[in-house]
Amino acid sequence: MFNHNYFIALKSIWRKEINRFLRIWVQTLVPPVITMSLYFVIFGNLIGARIGEMNGFDYMSFIVPGLIMMSVITNSYSNVASSFFSAKFQRNVEELLVAPVPNYVIILGYIGGGVTRGLMVGFMVTCVSLFFVDLQIFNIFVLILSVICTSILFSIGGLLNAIFAKTFDDISIIPTFVLTPLTYLGGVFYSINLLPDFWQAVSHFNPVFYMINAFRYGFLGIADVSLIWSFSVIIAFIVALYTLVAVLLSKGIGIRS
């Protein structure tokens, strides 16, 4: 059941989340754009020119989709992780817990905030990339669907991290030791066809690989694995993580004593 009151509650959480990251835009919106600009300059212009083509495209065109996706992933994740953990730390999560808001509305509200920031950063990085490369779009539908699904998935991931986190260190450990390696090894900078067979097989266990694969298809029309398989993996992860988060919140784990 999704009554009108829940819709107002959802809008309130979503708006609050957007206000939060806009209020601190110097911390939330500017750094990823600067970091990605450096990637474009160094990997694209300086080193990329020496690398030559990758899967039939110049190296810059090949890495741009991966870099955009990388910024979407890290920003969706860190927005929800830091916002929800701060709400726990300052105890203002209690504002939501005492109110007649079902857990799924809380989850959707935080996902909304994470997706909005992820897409906003992704859009800004895309705009910056236009200074370095003549971007083409092969399939806009696949492109939009893959970026939204990825953003949703990593927003839920950030929420899961925040639920378990007890200190601010806990919300930086996962991005540093799990998220960054998965992203770098997910084919942002290379096609997995370049890897030996064993490491190609290992890459298939990396969910980020499927997201970058689908997103790159939307831009360039090339894919290392089939789109149906990529979206199936992404949606399976979304369902699994959402279910886990919903169960944890209903039991009050990490939020109620």
Partner: peptide, 15 residues
């Protein structure tokens, strides 16, 4: 003001 308006929203009160 923002704290109060948000809190009202959680209870389904229009902005």
């Amino acid at each position: 003001l923002q704290i109060l308006v948000n809190q009202a929203g959680y209870y389904g009160i229009k902005r």
